[in-house]
Write a protein that binds this DNA or RNA. Structure first.
Lengths: 226, 226
DNA sequence: GCCTGTGAACCATTTCACAGCC
DNA sequence: GGCTGTGAAATGGTTCACAGGC
């Protein structure tokens, strides 16, 4: 294994999806001044298995010490670096309905590496109002002021989502978080992640209906789900 | 393959997670009075591949006709049945901050098989107020009035989430949708699904940073992401 | 001829189990 | 002695390609 820090390792998608969880599990340890953590301990906090955690971390390189554990601070900063969170990313929230409103006010973005920079809506009655301390602008104002890389959050009604996606892609946006149910057609280089609230409930309904009590992770009947 | 309609087939999790998308793709077809759809057409609408769609549907049984396609209405009702959505599920939203507020007003729940029946908060200043046409109650009132099966949506601050989870599990709740970042410890028979908004952005940030332009699904550079 | 249903091949991810190192 | 890092095995999921039936 080359230790060259510039090697672009190929980190599996499944691992990438768990890194944010590890980072969040590490934060209280950093704050508490804990120096070292074992894969077993961290896995428990993060709600995964220790073997999986070790494999995940091994894709980032060798940041642990055998017989000891992982240096908390070093590991946190390495994951931060891998996720590209050294400096905050700009976020534009497009669609200022109930959900856009809530997202604008959500403090979790700021604490985890994101700066909501634009609130965008097309309704003239909403444009110009202040939400969570920010002025809502229309799409033209947004388009005119975007210069840097930005992540677009689409919280419009479903019918407008594709149109908005096309428009932000035309502005050069390459990352979209979509709350509108339905499929977005975007160019291949554009990353889209979808959050569909009703779908989540429907998946729960399926299991609830089946009474599917899968007793995985048995222990004393407690399963960590995070 | 037994065609016994009472056979409890084992539907893979990955398939279950896609069924809601198929159902939503079917709805406009049902409304438009389309009688039959091919796996190719439906797959395009749903943003998946036709072979995968056919395999998914094969787990539900044989509801297509070779050389013809799938009966739209029959397939929709079969998926509805499999997901357990013949009658609406009751939902309790716990935590009436910005997000809980938005969820209470979200029309997508009602249209996709759910009835928000309780809005719950612990803040005496919020309890008794009306949000989206419903009275907010405190946890005791909620606990006293739950009789049927209910899905709990946790939209409290992170620090309260575990406590709320314990409380609803004690009430007999077996399905939780959790918006609070962090791990929930619940008994093994309890289903938890998590939506972590900052995590989604962090995953996007990773790819944005890498400029990972994976040209999968090439065609003319358009990729469906739904 | 056409489109579903499905084994078989392939690929990704998870888990196991232990060698390697402190 | 203890804990990481990782090949190897097992599992789960996706894609291929074609047989089967209209």
């Amino acid at each position: 294994m080359t230790t060259d820090p510039m090697t672009r390792r190929d980190i599996p998608d499944a691992t990438v999806a768990r890194l944010p969880g590890y980072l969040r599990a590490l934060h209280p340890l950093v704050s508490a001044g804990v120096e070292v953590v074992s894969s077993e301990e961290l896995a428990t906090i993060a709600g995964v298995r220790s073997a999986g955690l070790r494999k995940d971390l091994s894709y980032l390189g060798s940041y642990g010490v055998r017989g000891v554990g992982y240096d908390v601070e070093r590991l946190a900063s390495e994951i931060t670096r891998q996720l590209g969170l050294q400096h905050p990313w700009s976020v534009a929230i497009i669609g200022m309905g109930n959900l856009g409103h809530a997202l604008a006010a959500y403090s979790g973005f700021a604490t985890r590496g994101f700066k909501v920079q634009w609130l965008v809506d097309r309704d003239p009655a909403v444009v110009g109002t202040t939400i969570a301390g920010m002025q809502v602008v229309d799409f033209e104002q947004f388009a005119a002021s975007v210069t840097e890389q930005v992540i677009a959050v689409i919280s419009t009604p479903p019918v407008a989502a594709q149109e908005v996606a096309d428009a932000v892609v035309a502005l050069g946006v390459r990352s979209i978080l979509n709350f509108a149910p339905g499929v977005l057609n975007v160019p291949a280089h554009t990353q889209v992640r979808k959050v569909d609230l009703a779908t989540e409930l429907q998946i729960l309904a399926f299991h609830e209906q089946r009474g599917k009590d899968d007793a995985r992770l048995g222990a004393d009947g407690i399963e960590a789900s995070g």
